[in-house]
Nucleic acid binder design. Sequence first.
DNA 1: AACAGGCAATGACGTCCATCAATCCCATCT
DNA 2: AGATGGGATTGATGGACGTCATTGCCTGTT
Lengths: 255, 255
Amino acid sequence: MNKKENAKVINIASIKAACKDCNLRELCLPLGLGEPDLTALDKVIRRRRTLRKGEQLYRLGDPLKSLYAVRSGTLKTTGLMEDGRVQVTGFHLAGELLGIDAINTDQHPCSAEALETSEVCEIPYIALEELAHQVPGLQHQLFRVMSREIVEDERLLMMLGRMNAEERLASCLLSFSRRHERLGVNGAAFKLSMSRQDLGDYLGLALETVSRLFSRFQEEGLIEVQGRHVHLRDNDRLHAIAGGNGNSRSHAQRN
Amino acid sequence: MNKKENAKVINIASIKAACKDCNLRELCLPLGLGEPDLTALDKVIRRRRTLRKGEQLYRLGDPLKSLYAVRSGTLKTTGLMEDGRVQVTGFHLAGELLGIDAINTDQHPCSAEALETSEVCEIPYIALEELAHQVPGLQHQLFRVMSREIVEDERLLMMLGRMNAEERLASCLLSFSRRHERLGVNGAAFKLSMSRQDLGDYLGLALETVSRLFSRFQEEGLIEVQGRHVHLRDNDRLHAIAGGNGNSRSHAQRN
DNA sequence: AACAGGCAATGACGTCCATCAATCCCATCT
DNA sequence: AGATGGGATTGATGGACGTCATTGCCTGTT
């Protein structure tokens, strides 16, 4: 398709779209809000911003100005060690909120980068907090979203601390599948927007290990892989592996 | 000192103590609140609860009723895999808030257990949310505290995903040190309230590895250990190790 | 077409840490 | 004091995964 025209169409659409006619309404901050509150929220949301692949939304150390809701595309957030080691702390799909970890110190403790062309809604934080004060439903939803972020991080903690490589990848693939379904897309077949390196940095593995695992999963009939295209073939077995009932020896020896 | 009398004194003190004369005022939810708001918060906080070592504050799957502020002692929160593997998601000292990960689904996704005799303030969640709506300062502080929890989890993610064993322990010890200082206690020497197993479950290591590391750190003059008593002897080198500049070969090979 | 360059797949090898197992220490109770 | 039991230490061994290196694939550019 023609790129220039396509870009123009997206722009026009994005300028007009407001929370109240956004298809992500039920997955994002507006959840549970009524008509008048939605209008108020729309007034607070400053603008849509489009990021190209590789572009950064904010950088580690940047002062907190806004939170961002992902409207389309995917972003990753990455923490950095002094010596350059990277930990991806999350992949963020449409409907998810970015930047809440900056509220604590008014500084972003990690960077956010688009993995593909992505759109985000910018929500100035001061205004959001102010509005949350006036709209209890919004306050409630904000608490929930922040809590969800914590739960998500805890799931990842479990993966990194207590799962082996194959359990981590199985778990990760199933998570992607679930989230795609939540967005109304087919959860069994999807395209990964991140590189093997990114996946490794997320799962605490070397990219080679991730690559080998993809191959092995394919050999074992769990999935089909073709570069970044993944097709889940045996959800039951994937679940068994992710839950710790893979064919490898059990780790549980606590009486 | 006489244990019985001491216990009695603490009890009497704790019954009377309210947020407005709590010495943790500046570390906990009341931060930034004025006199009248503090009184309102005190009305919401239902009661003090004392937990003995090993007692559980809530269990995985319990419905969310209250959040808890640690007043004294230490608790751990643990996630559980189906096959019994444990991940400690945090150690919680005085002034820290527990249970916010339950807001998302109104169910606790992990269990909380006292590592020593501990006191917590119970804060019914519904009432807290209601009050936060009326008191902007409280709402603000709640957002901050939740955000801090996320940052804390992200730090741990970095540890589990990208640090080796010695870096994890050094980092962990320094974190304890910092938090003790925040409480006005000497940060260089403290008593661990958790077992080696707990530390291992937190750091994603086997308890034997933790034990060996303690011994090695001692040999190298970084710390002194005597069971659960730890004395930090060389903060600079500990920092160097925790930051990834230990004597082990550098991990950074990203150009 | 041919080329370049980034990403992915695969192999060989080494190492860090888990596992298994045997003491050892220490606090508590009788 | 002696007994008891949970925690901690220490050693030996093996395996999972990181590291290094090569080759292959795919996309976009000239």
